[in-house]
Write a protein that binds this DNA or RNA. Structure first.
Lengths: 191, 191
DNA sequence: AAATTAAACTAACAATCGTTAGTTTTGTTA
DNA sequence: TAACAAAACTAACGATTGTTAGTTTAATTT
């Protein structure tokens, strides 16, 4: 029983490199070198480079899906749900920075089967998000704005949080948790 | 005197492929095939694959810089400046979709020299944006929110617009021009 | 028509890619 | 200590990469 097995080490190391340079610009030899071993040795632990990518991407995608499935049915109002979702994006950004970056940048390099799985998860997530917005509009909690634009705007910002986080200290994460919901939900213009 | 010279055709074709699959996943042979010629023939018109990338990225980056330099010194208030910037992002998204996608996704594959040029342009752009925000806060036109979070949130959304645009009709661009500034500047929560 | 230029071609290069086969080393269990 | 399993190794494969050299074709100018 190991604390972290070798396969996990490989995936974590690969994610770190993928984040910096992108999936296609990182070779198996690069990953191996970072671990102090030879490329061929990686294959004692993983099946292929593609398996590394799909493990990373689907891990993060499932984290988002799981949280959404937990929040969505709760009997809280739409604003509280949106705040919970934003918090979750911040949490995942902090806890799985490299994995998240890899999902954002390299999901299109998944092979046919894994790509289909990923897109299914992603579409379901956006559909739930859309329903929360529309519920909020119906209950007069939110402005009746174009839902697609709102979804796009908020999810794009949340997905890209890892870019912001990489440059900031952990102290500022608390600031982010406090201020980002305000910016996204209430805008910046004075009334 | 040709309407479009061969080099431009190559760059436009490359941008289209880079957008779909990313710089590293597109080979010179792929670009050539799309043009109906052989890979070696490309080198009658361009110096290297890297030159294609830098032409694309710096073209877009300079478009943004030029517009910012034109808007920034105008004597209009901060909200009007922000609206003009948002409009410009939408315009560039529509006019140079593939180039913009390539800039967003592949700038980190620029070689040392071009990367430095790109980052200089990008940092200057963000600095101007920051000053406009702070001017707006000082003049009590904008809420006194964390500037870094606001910059990040708005610029991230604007940079990713090409993703949204690719899926929508040109009719909806008018909707976007009308509604996106509202969403970004005023938020979505009812007062 | 001859000469020149532009733009395509074929062929090949050295390097690197993901991956496999077979072997040796290391660490654990019987 | 002998046996076994896990995890590293060396060596090599076929494919693909960006690019160059040299040649041929097509278009333009003299």
């Amino acid at each position: 029983m190991k604390i972290t097995d070798r396969k996990s080490e490989i995936i974590v190391t690969a994610a770190k490199l993928f984040k910096k340079r992108g999936y296609n610009a990182v070779s198996m030899r690069d990953i191996a070198q970072e671990l102090g071993i030879k490329a061929a040795s990686l294959y004692n632990h993983i099946k292929s480079k593609q398996e590394i990518l799909s493990d990373i991407v689907l891990n993060v995608a499932e984290s988002f899906t799981n949280h959404m499935e937990q929040i969505y049915p709760q009997s809280i109002n739409s604003i509280q749900k949106l705040e919970a979702i934003i918090q979750n994006h911040i949490d995942i950004t902090v806890q799985k920075t490299d994995f998240l970056a890899c999902m954002n940048n390299d999901w299109m390099h998944l092979d046919e089967e894994n790509l289909a799985t990923y897109l299914k998860l992603r579409n379901a997530y956006e559909a739930s998000f859309r329903k929360i917005l529309q519920e909020g509009i119906a209950k007069n909690e939110l402005e009746n704005q174009n839902s697609e634009i709102v979804i796009f705007s908020i999810l794009t910002t949340l997905r890209a949080l890892y870019l912001w986080y990489s440059k900031k200290s952990s102290v500022e994460v608390e600031v982010l948790k406090k201020d980002l919901p305000k910016t996204l939900l209430h805008g910046i213009v004075k009334n």
